[in-house]
Design a protein around this nucleic acid. Sequence first.
RNA 1: GCCCGGAUGGUGGAAUUGGUAGACACGAAGGACUUAAAAUCCUUUGACCAUUGCGGUCGUGUGGGUUCAAGUCCCACUCCGGGUACCA
Length: 928
Amino acid sequence: MEYNHKQIEQKWQQYWAEHKTFKAENNSPKPKFYVLDMFPYPSGAGLHVGHPLGYIASDIYARYMRHKGYNVLHPMGYDAYGLPAEQYAIQTGTHPAVTTEKNIARYRQQLDQIGFSYDWDREVQTCDPFYYKWTQWTFIQLFNSWYDNKSNKAQPIEKLINAFAANGNEGIVAACDETEPFTAEEWNAMGEKAQQELLMNYRLAYLAETWVNWCPELGTVLANDEVKDGVSERGGHPVERKRMRQWSLRITAYAQRMLDGLDTIEWSESIKEVQRNWIGRSEGASVNFAIDGHNEIIEVFTTRPDTLYGATFMVLAPEHELINTITTADQKEEVDTYVTWAKNRSERERMTEVKKVTGVFTGAYGINPLTGEKVPIWTADYVLSGYGTGAIMAVPGHDSRDFAFARQFQLPIIQVVCANDDQPSDPATWEESYDSKEGKMINSGIINGLEVKEAITTIIKHIEDNKFGYGTINYRLRDAIFSRQRYWGEPFPVYYKDDMPYTVDESKLPVELPEVDKYLPTESGEPPLARATNWETEEGYRMETNTMPGFAGSSGYYLRYMDPTNDKEYFSKEAADYWQQVDLYLGGDEHATGHLIYARFWNKFLFDIGIAPKDEPFKKLINQGKIQGRSNFVYRVNGTNKFVSKGLRSEYETTALHVDINFVHNDVLDTEAFKNWREEYKNAEFILEDGKYICGWEVEKMSKSKYNVQNPDELVVHYGADTLRLYEMFLGPLEAHKPWDTNGIEGVFRFLKKTWKLYHNENNEFDVSDEKATAEELKVLHKAIRKIEDDITRFSFNTAVSTYMICVNDLSALKCNKREILEPLAILLSPYASHMAEELWQLLGHEGSVEYIDFPEFRKEYVEENTFEYPVSFNGKMRFKITLPVDMPKEEAEKAVVEAEEAQKWIEGKTVRKIIVVPKRIINVVVV
RNA sequence: GCCCGGAUGGUGGAAUUGGUAGACACGAAGGACUUAAAAUCCUUUGACCAUUGCGGUCGUGUGGGUUCAAGUCCCACUCCGGGUACCA
């Protein structure tokens, strides 16, 4: 039989499904290994060749680990909530569940035909009530928890309530909103509503009025990571700042642990760095400035408390709550105008006009706590309401933004730090501020003469002793906005009583997504769920109408895979104790500030409440690179319907046009297919070179409009899944971004046919001999075993493919058809060319799957040699080779080299200074 | 601006610890088989010089350095890709 990939692949895919070959057991004496892919959002476009890249790599690893005796958990599911299905629903009225189900079916069919070794019995879909019950359950736990900075973990809210009832909030050190001190008596005297409101300051899932990213086009708020460059990540619509009452998750409570945890996990340095920046820890001090003529104070955060003597003005963000209070009558109009203007600017405008310095004086003065001097208070939008306290002390001498502002509005500049190799100078002559932390303090009272670093610690102590501030740490990370005004998401398990939110009883979960007549907001602007009839509890309390964001369902899905059919709990303790955490996680690095932040937070919380077994969810993370498109171009001679081949285009005035890559093979255009593509090309003429039309090419994003989208289906039909699997790996290092280019796929296909032939005679009959293998054959095999294992374990999936090729090429040259070689080779191939390996294994006379057969053991005695062919170089340049025994003493080797015939012409007339012999590597002769 | 990647033949890439640069594959050229095509097989293929053969010179973005030896380490720079930002 010839290599018939279609028949073989169908047969084994069916076998695997019927026999549940890849079923993972929660009880097993074997060591466990958990390999996870980031689950996909099932879009209408289906899979393109970029998706399977990571899936194939993880599949190879999973299969390899099974051969090595591990009980492997390798599940797949769907991140099924998402905007596209909902936008489609708005346009067509089709329920998003219907669209989603259809898309999932297509994804499944595409995944199946590539032959992944998923345990499909563990599939999860985030939109399935059976699954999102646990998303809702987790939300309830978050609602009922607060973060105790003393024990440094989440604690039950009852503990807090008990503490309040006993001692008020004295002695409570929590991650919370600013809360006035109160006593036990005060607490006990409060009504329920007041108590609930107060508790809201502490809950890890809380409802609060906050500045949010509002996207009018999508009709919803977005989290910070869902906004890129001032527009929505999905759809690219403008985003505004708006104050709204929203659910948030107090992820900031975990900022330090999220930062520390990064040092304990095996992720790429770059993605850790992105997360560190996103968390944005900075050390500094909080300093209180009194306001002249007011009782209020302005609290500022600064990383440079040492420059406090150089603070010559203050700036409040336009959103700052004290602006109204402190603005003087004669400045009021100007300030109001400015504040209104600044607030209404879109994020996008604000970002693109960064260079433009704007601001207005409020008329009020702050008092520098060190000098007692009055400094003017301004408002300007270069101070952000979302960072620190939304207020700064401006030190124009040593901060470039303050410097620009001072110059613009002619505010005084004082030098307080002097570079060590410089003399103090008049700031009026400066062209830029001196921002460096190197230097000595001047004009700075009690810290004069100190180095910046000493000055910082000294001044913080002084500030604390005099009680006008304290040393503190600030994070850029914001709490995660957790409500969306959309239909297609998890409903909150929340109802409202007396306008205060309460969670529904856990026994009532899941709160199922209700039907609505339209997937749009109501006339009064409420979210779509407000359209549902009887959207209230049995007692008649109204239900929350927001839904949860996309990251809700994906933040804990890896835990649910451990025990996905459990209807009593999220997952059993036994399952969690067995699987612990994900050992290897594969996915794109675009999730660095979204999913990978939220999932770590989610997991840490579940760890705190004692159900997740590990503090970190993903032990090792690999980011597969993006597959870019490779577009092809034809060159139309301007004003004609003639197309000129690439090499001749310089002779004409031409326009390059994208051409569908399906009409192009190895950059040669199928002119007939091109003519039939579109009516306008029916009569196209071609100017050929060497009888061919050669297309130009370029690497671009894969997109429909560029006609460069490669869908794996047609490749599977033509070459088979095994070829696709090998080829995607052969493309290059897993983590590199690389263009998709089918030009090399033939080579991989040839390799598989060649492999098949090893097991078959010239009449295509299976023909394997039981003869003893030669030393040479064994050496070829064992060199491959060593290299393949080494490559897979260091995730170098591309080089393993070359190793297979070398091995098969060598065995073909040796005309080897011996069972002693070909049987281990079939196992060796199984992680990559899984279908063929199964078929060969069966042809070799075995019952059942090759999947759990032990990986061939590398035996070094087969590859060891007693001689080595040394490259001999003279002054570092390789000149000839000499074969010497590996155990030859250096002196003898040196002698052998110098006496070698080929050496004479390099030594002649020169002196041999030195000979370096590196055993089993190289011999270098230094001559002068 | 800052942070992180990267730059090796016509192309994708290999070279794991400083030790033969270009594995493996594509493409290209030539050839075998064939009525023909497909498939398969063989030879050549970094550049330049030499060519009857032996060979030789240069060569991993650029310029310097360390070393017996540098794609690999160090310093400076150029370009490309990605991320991120009035973050006080």
